[in-house]
Amino acid sequence: MAEVILEQLSKSFGKKHAVIDMSMTIDDGSFVVLLGPTGAGKTTTLRLISGLEKNDKGTISIDGRVVNNETPAQRDVAMVFQQYSLYPHLSVRENLSFPLRSPILKTSKADIVAKVAEVADILQISHKLDNRATELSGGEMQRVSIGRALVRDPAIYLMDEPLSSLDARLRADLRIELKRIHSELGATLLYVTHDQTEAMTMATHVGVLQEGRLVQFGTPREIYEAPASEYVASRLGSPRINLLPAELFNLSDGLTQTIGLRPEHVKFGEGQAASVKRIEHLGDHTRLHLDLNGHAITVLSPSGNPFSAGTSVNIQPLNPLCFDKDGQRIIRDSA
């Protein structure tokens, strides 16, 4: 396991700038999640670190060693691809032992067998070891491809949306599994996703990407509570943050253009009157869809939910986030 440092990393494909001036430190043993929509440069960042792509500018260092000109093999990274990328002509067992059979490693046969059995057990694919890779379901294939990374003890695990093609239940299971692997092995992980639940639940640090740039890097809590911009604020949180014009609550102070209101950042019983459009009962909590002068707002209902659709309710922002005309958050000292 090792620390990975990116400094002013840039990469373009023709005219398209995939990664721009990215600097980031992935501490030894941390679980970093890169979050961003399609095309934000998440996958390219992974491929640059793995060595499958060469960076145009900047440096990548792994364990204190600059690896810019090293091959993927020399960098000693393990990667899980978004497509399963299994060796289709090999059995599950052969797929899992493929990385261990590398002549550089000189792993003994007994060790390979033991390691494969161990990983297969973790991922619950022991009963499929002798199947061909192509005879598996999508979920099983992805577990094998995660397993192929886990059999190794690399400097860093790179994972490119490994759970995106799995069904909800398996995804939840594997999320816990990955988190467990991370804490048990003390592994360093860089994980790419557009799923904010994955980011919130697994990450020790989240990096938010916007059009090739790293716009904010911090713990999931920091990102959630103190987003740097409207863009970052709308990346985390479900339901999404409500972005409303500041005048709506007469909060204009000349600088604030937009206020961001998390669903829980609402005080009921005072302030503006809004009509209740729809109520969503989700068991442990209830969501209200409100309409305030033509602006849709989603808020968390207080416990007991005294409201019903069609009625009116007064709401007042509670510690809203303020953004200026460029969408950057205005940081007030001791607000």
Binding site: L52, A73, V77, M79, F81, S85, S102, R148
Partner: peptide, 17 residues
């Protein structure tokens, strides 16, 4: 597919292998 070679590259298989 290319990604199979990429996976092998990551798995530290030499060109010959």
């Amino acid at each position: 597919p290319d990604y199979i070679y990429e996976a092998a590259e990551i798995d530290r298989a030499s060109k010959l292998r």
